[in-house]
Design a binder for these strands. Structure first.
Lengths: 124, 124
DNA sequence: TATACAAGGTTACATTTGTAACCTTATAGA
DNA sequence: TCTATAAGGTTACAAATGTAACCTTGTATA
């Protein structure tokens, strides 16, 4: 029932590794997770299975014994999706409201904002 | 175990009503939720109880029969908290990364950014 | 004054999520 | 060739979450 963008926190950690490495075998995933979060091998396998169930990840068999996992959602699409949900949930869906909050709480400086304007201007 | 800022999605809808009305009785909450989300009276009671358990809400008895519910977390504190979590989870904790994403996806205009700079400048 | 209802509190239950044990099978080394 | 191990797949389980039924009790009204 859940779609491929419905990715839980634990699942996300795995997606991050997949996005970083394009595709990955289980051992690599576990290795990269260590330090960040310590997860049992079986836990990772279950998370991968759920991601596959939802269509967020695909498994490719290399041979009878080995498998690699490939992300099937693009990171930038996922991020847009998360941004939208977050804005909808807390800021009436309006980017402006969130930005205003950042400004009010000094989470962003004049210089940063100016740099963003520069980027926008360099585009047209 | 969870602290007063650990508010779930369903609980948040109730907090929004409480923040808007300062304090509120059950009927008002249910009334205001309708249209937005349709929740059974008992569902709302359970959510309120959980919020009270965590210290996010306090209940004040008006008389033997009636009660009002008062938010015990400030909305702006809650929002900062949510912003931090969101940034940590998806943007390495950096406001700049999120803003850059907004710019790249045309979620924010030059004019908006300029307005924010103006606000910052009018403050000092 | 007896009783139905409204208000609040408590218990229950299915689903989702995080975590890990358990089961199979292919293969490398004894 | 036989067997321990590594790789992958499946099942299990507790905690969190969303939802609502069930239980008490004060009170208005028949």
């Amino acid at each position: 029932m859940p779609n491929k963008y419905d990715i839980t926190d634990a699942e996300l950690e795995i997606m991050q590794v997949l996005w970083k490495n394009k595709e990955c075998d289980l051992n690599t995933i576990i290795e990269e997770l260590n330090g960040e979060t310590d997860k049992n091998r079986n836990t990772v396998k279950t998370l991968l299975r759920r991601l596959i169930l939802k269509g967020s990840v695909e498994s490719k068999k290399i041979n009878l014994k080995d498998t690699v996992y490939v992300p099937k959602v693009k990171k930038d699409k996922f991020l847009s999706n998360q941004n939208d949900n977050f804005l909808k949930k807390l800021y009436n869906g309006k980017t402006g409201n969130l930005l205003l909050n950042f400004v009010e709480n000094k989470k962003v400086s004049k210089e940063e904002l100016q740099k963003l304007i520069d980027i926008l201007e360099s585009e047209d």
